[in-house]
Design a protein around this nucleic acid. Structure first.
Lengths: 137, 137
DNA sequence: TGCCTATATGCTTATATTTGCATATAAGAT
DNA sequence: ATCTTATATGCAAATATAAGCATATAGGCA
C-alpha cells in the first residue's frame, strides 16, 4: 500500500467526530446502526453520516444494509484492519471515550433480537422506553 | 487526554511527509539529525523541518540540540508514545517505507563516533564519501 | 570580524476540510 | 398514494492546511 493511502487512513482517524465513531465501531462487538451511533455520541445525524462515508472511503468500515437501516462494522476484507482497530481501541482506552461506550451500551438495550428497532431517541425517551421494556435504566 | 488531542496526534501522522519522518524516527534506534532525515527522504529541508515542528507540537518527538545540529527521537516523556511508535512501525512495515529505512541506513554510515558529521549530501557525494571512508557502498 | 552551514520560520498561494443547513432518496407503514 | 422515518448528500461559508520560496537565526570556524 502506498505512503499516501496509509497517511490517508490516519488522517481519516485524525478528526474528533470520526475518531469517536471509529472507536465505537472498534470497541463494539456488534454492527452498529447509524441512529445508535448518533444517539450514543449525541451528534447531528448528518455529521455521523458523513463521518461514516469517509471511514468507508478509507476502507476502514463497511455497511450491511437492511432496508433503510445501515449496520456499520469494521471492514474485515482488509486484513490489516484487524490490528488497526486493535490499536484504535487501545489508543482511545480510558476516560473521554469510555463515556461513549457507556452511552452506546445503554442505547443497545433497546434492541430486539439484536436489531435496532427505534430511530433517534432523546435521553428522556430512552429512559421511558427502557422502563417500558423492563430493562435496567 | 481529551478526544481532541488524541485526534490531533492521528491527524499529525496523517500526512505523507510527517508519516515518513515519524516512521524513520520510530524505526531507527538512534536519534536522527535533520540532515540525515532530509537525505534519507530526499525532501526539501524546510519540509522536513516543518514536519518535525508539528510532530513535536503533537508531543510525538523531542529534540536534543547539539550546537546547530538537532537530534530527533521519540518523546519518551509521554509514556503512551511507546505503543504509538510501535504501532507506527508495524503500520508502515513493508515496501514503500522500507526504502526510506534503507536510505537512512546508508546515510548513517557516514557518522563518526555515532554523530552526524556532514550536512546534506547528494547521492553522488554520499558514494564518494563512503568510498573514502572505506565502508561498503 | 565575517563567512559557512544547519536549522527554523514568515509569507503567500492554492487547495482542502469542517460545519451547518436544507433537501434528497428510498423503504416501510397506513 | 401519501406519510413517516432512516440515512445520505449538495451547497455555501468559514477556516485550516500544504507547498514553495526566501530569509532569519545561530553556532562554529577562518
Amino acid at each position: 500500500m502506498s505512503v499516501n493511502s496509509k497517511a490517508e487512513i490516519l488522517k481519516t482517524l485524525g478528526d474528533q467526530t470520526r475518531l469517536r465513531v471509529a472507536h465505537l465501531i472498534a470497541a463494539s462487538k456488534k454492527s452498529l446502526c447509524v441512529c445508535e451511533i448518533v444517539d450514543a455520541l449525541k451528534l447531528p445525524q448528518y455529521r455521523v453520516s458523513k463521518s461514516l462515508v469517509m471511514l468507508r472511503r478509507a476502507g476502514l468500515v463497511d455497511v450491511d444494509r437492511n432496508g433503510t437501516w445501515g449496520y456499520y462494522h469494521p471492514n474485515e476484507s482488509e486484513k490489516a484492519n484487524a490490528s488497526l482497530f486493535e490499536f484504535v481501541k487501545e489508543f482511545c482506552a480510558g476516560e473521554p471515550f469510555d463515556l461513549d461506550i457507556d452511552a452506546l451500551d445503554r442505547r443497545l438495550k433497546l434492541r430486539e433480537k439484536d436489531k435496532c428497532v427505534v430511530g433517534f431517541v432523546s435521553e428522556k425517551e430512552l429512559v421511558k422506553l427502557m422502563r417500558k421494556k423492563g430493562v435496567e435504566v
